[in-house]
Every structure is written in C-alpha cells, then in structure tokens.
C-alpha cells in the first residue's frame, strides 16, 4: 500500500474542521493524524484478514486451491447453519426495531428525569456480561424458573412452558443483549430532530399519527437503519447466547467455526467459513448501501 497516497487524500478533513489561520505545523500534516489509525487497522485487522484469506485458499503443498470452497459448497449441514444464523439475526433485528423504536421515542420526548431513568435501565444491563445475562434468563424462564413456577402454581398452565433451549429462548436472549444497539442510534437522531417540524405539521392540520408518519419517521429513518445494521451484524456473529439458551435447531455458524478451529484444528476450513460469513454480511451491507445509500447506513445523524 502506498502510504503517500493516504497522507495526501483526506485534506478535506482538516480544511473543513479547522478555522483558517489556526494551523500549527503538525496540523498541516493531517496524514500524521490518521497514520496511527491506518497502522493500527493495517496491523491488527487488514494483515490478519489477509493471512486468513491465505489459509482458506492455500493447498497443503503451497499452491492455490478451491478445495475448501468446494467442501463448503457440498456440505448441506453448513448451509443449514448459515440459514439458521441469518434467520435468527433477521428476527432479532426486526424485534429489536419494534421494541427499540417506541422506547427511543419515549426517551426522546419524555422529561429529563424520566429519560435518565430509562437510560440507566438500558445501560446497566448493557454493562453486565453477556454470560451473566444469558444465565439470568435460565433462572427466569427455565422449567423450574420463576415464571414457570408462578404459571403452574397459579393454575394458568398445567405443565411448564418450553420457553428455553429452543428458538424462542435464543430470540429472547439476543433481543435483550442487542436492544441498546438499536435504541441508542434512534434516540440520538430523535434528540436532534427539530421539534418545530412535527409542530408545524400539527398546526397545518395533521393528526398526531399523520405528523409522526410523514415527518418524524422519515427524519429518524437514518437512526433506525443504523440500529438495524448494528444489531444485524452483531447478531450474525453471536455465539454464547444461542449456545446457552438454544436447542439443537439453533446451532449458528459461529458455533461451527469454533468447533472446526478449536477442536478439529482445521484452520483452512475454519478460515473459509469465516470468510464466507464475512462475504455474506458484506453482501447484505452492500445491497443495503446500493438502495439506501452508504452514508445513511453508517451515519446515525439525522438530516433535515
């Protein structure tokens, strides 16, 4: 990679950010400022990715091979795991959006005190370990968990409901873990929303619902999309929660990658599985960018 090019390229960063006449010598070299980030990503991300790609396509005797790719294509079990993974991730994303948007809206429109409380309610579980949160669900939803004990004792059901160790358990656990990633971007956009715009719609005779659908919702769409992208990408790589709360129909590709890499020491095939997952996620992202625009996908800022 040609370092000089990177140094020269992003002049606009400092031009737009700094007032004229305030340039110190080091600031005149913006390349230095991003050099750290480039080296960091290059050494810790790009290089390992290249090595990983090498493993996936190098044969045992050194030459180039499609053997791992062919193996992946011919193994139905891995396809099933890919489908399970994407299905789980999409449902998680949709449920997060359905629950997250109203919550974010409430946070943006309520009093500052209530907002602080809501924020604490969202953030405190967010700082708890994923493992602890998943185990807490076993205590709540298990066969002899609090909810089932209560349901059976009150006579509402005759036998404990199967809430865990199936897809329902996985979805509950994953939505809980990933909800903050949906709420925060939406909330950030809604907070910046010019409140005079829905007010203007109302003064022109729109019902609250109409004002919401035609003014607030379109303006907050970038936040919603950003939340969806975040939740989807994290959900695709999720591993602990499906393993702890899921059943035999919830085995995700991350689980299989772990088995291939750690137990079978088959690193070339593990690399191929990882690359395929990345390519598929990248494909989804590219598809989204094509239709929605990459800036909207990556930016959580509302544009008015």
């Amino acid at each position: 990679m040609d370092g000089a090019e990177i140094v020269r390229q992003p002049r606009w960063i400092w031009r737009s950010a700094l007032p004229d006449g305030d340039r110190k010598p080091w600031r005149a070299r913006p390349g230095l400022m991003i050099l750290g980030a480039v080296l960091f990503l290059g050494a810790l991300y790009l290089l390992p990715m290249l090595i990983l790609t090498g493993w996936a396509f190098r044969g045992p005797n050194g030459g180039f091979t499609f053997a791992q790719a062919r193996r992946l294509l011919s193994e139905g079990a891995y396809h099933t795991a890919f489908i399970t993974t994407f299905r789980t991730a999409i449902i998680t994303m949709l449920v997060c959006a359905l629950i997250g948007y109203p919550l974010a809206y409430l946070m943006a429109t309520t009093s500052p005190r209530a907002r602080t409380l809501l924020m604490a309610g969202i953030m405190i579980p967010f700082w708890t370990s994923v493992l602890a949160r998943s185990l807490a669900w076993i205590i709540l939803l298990g066969k002899r968990g609090i909810l089932n004990e209560w349901l059976v004792a009150s006579g509402l059901v005759s036998a404990p409901l199967p809430l865990l160790f199936n897809s329902l358990g996985v979805q509950i656990g994953m939505v809980h873990v990933l909800l903050p990633f949906m709420i925060l971007p939406i909330w950030a956009v809604l907070m910046r929303l010019d409140q005079s715009l829905p007010a203007a719609a109302r003064s022109l005779g729109a019902s609250p619902m109409r004002a919401f659908i035609h003014v607030v919702l379109p303006l907050s769409l970038p936040g919603l999309l950003a939340g969806c992208v975040l939740v989807f990408m994290l959900a695709v790589g999720f591993y602990i929660t499906p393993a702890l709360l899921g059943g035999d129909r919830d085995i995700t590709i991350a689980s299989l990658i772990e088995m291939v890499v750690r137990d079978l020491l088959d690193w070339p095939f593990g690399a191929m599985l990882s690359l395929s997952l990345m390519a598929l996620v990248g494909g989804v992202f590219a598809f989204g960018a094509l239709f929605i625009g990459a800036e909207r996908l990556t930016s959580a800022e509302g544009r008015t």
Binding site: E75, G76, A77, T80, A81, D248, I251, L256, M259, L264
Partner: peptide, 15 residues
C-alpha cells in the same frame, strides 16, 4: 475422533 466429531456437528445441524 475427527471424523465422528464432524459427523456429530452435521448430525446435530441437519433436521
């Protein structure tokens, strides 16, 4: 052990 561990994963994933 390798063959059966891999078979186990496939057995589990396949409906």
């Amino acid at each position: 052990i390798e063959a059966q561990t891999e078979r186990y994963a496939k057995w589990m994933v396949q409906r």
